[in-house]
Design a protein around this nucleic acid. Structure first.
Length: 284
DNA sequence: AAAGAATGCAACCGCATAACA
DNA sequence: CTGTTATGCGGTTGCATTCTT
């Protein structure tokens, strides 16, 4: 596919903030002639702007149906819920909130809601630390609810304690750790990495603590525990198959690596033991 | 009161894809 | 079918405003 390029000559076009006069010109023009072609429109409208700039200004600011003012509690809840389900699909989220633009929702998320969610996570973590649950509390109430028969019988799960989650000792990973390669150096290789990176960055997770593990996606050393990651990713435990395939990436922690197989290409998820050697999965 | 830091948000950029020639 | 253009989307940037010290 040929990369799109603005056909306009941008050498003498105005950039930066819009003046009230420019706003008036655009409103007046659209009111009279409607939106017929963003690229051609600026000239007859008397604007020294690119069509792209005009479109953005109209869509994000000048449209008459744009809702002003603070987000309501209900709107917040919708955004949070949809973001959990869809990720950064701002336009889709905006479609559920009449009068709100994708840009506005995106800004609102980055400046308010992500922090709010992070604080809730922190609170949950603190609560966990004050009142640590046993591993059993992470398990489903019934085996069939998890589709993970045999999990409790695994020697690894039965040996775990809450202390393992917050240990700062290096993991005993399934594969080889590329110690000198941070996640940022591996970003291009996998969508799984991309998704994981963006999510973790959203929560200010120290990227230097993230390493690539051969064949198993990414793993974390130090920083957030599995439970913390689990809260961030809003994952049930154990994860359902579709969760892994939608790009959550590996949700690892010391001792156990929960990963889709081979960097998320085809099958999974698999629950790898710390001594994973290629076939020790409990959940084929 | 002033300076620096943090925050909020409008605007821009690059890319993907639909639409068209 | 292929190449080109227009539009829309998500990530990022930069600046104005507000807050903190």
């Amino acid at each position: 596919m040929v990369k799109a390029r603005d056909s306009e000559n941008t050498s003498n076009l105005k950039r930066g903030s819009w003046s009230p006069e420019e706003d008036q010109k655009l409103i007046a023009y659209i009111s009279k002639y409607g939106i017929w072609n963003w690229t051609e429109m600026p000239k007859p409208a008397g604007l020294l702007r690119t069509g792209k700039s005009c479109r953005l200004r109209w869509m994000n600011y000048l449209r008459p149906d744009i809702k002003r003012g603070n987000f309501t509690q209900e709107e917040e809840e919708i955004i949070i819920q949809m973001h959990q389900e869809l990720g950064n699909r701002w336009s889709t989220i905006a479609a559920r909130l009449p009068g709100r633009t994708d840009n506005e929702i995106k800004n609102y998320w980055h400046t308010r809601l992500s922090k709010k969610c992070y604080q809730e996570i922190q609170a949950a973590i603190e609560d966990n630390q004050n009142n640590p649950p046993g591993v059993d509390s992470l398990l489903p109430s019934t085996p069939e609810a998890s589709n993970m028969d045999g999990y409790k019988e695994s020697p690894i799960s039965s040996e775990l304690s809450i202390d393992d989650y917050s240990s700062s000792s290096p993991p005993d990973p399934a594969g080889e750790i590329y110690e000198n390669q941070t996640i940022k150096e591996n970003i291009g290789s996998s969508n799984t990495y991309r998704d994981l990176q963006s999510l973790l960055e959203q929560y200010s997770f120290p990227m230097e603590n993230l390493y690539k593990v051969d064949g198993c996606g990414a793993t974390a050393q130090g920083g957030l525990s599995k439970e913390e990651l689990q809260i961030i990713f809003e994952l049930p435990f154990p994860m359902e198959g579709s969760d892994m395939m939608e790009g959550y990436g590996a949700i690892p922690y010391h001792g156990i690596e929960v990963s889709n197989s081979q960097c998320g290409l085809q099958e999974g998820p698999y629950l790898f033991s710390s001594n994973y050697e290629g076939g020790n999965d409990f959940w084929p």
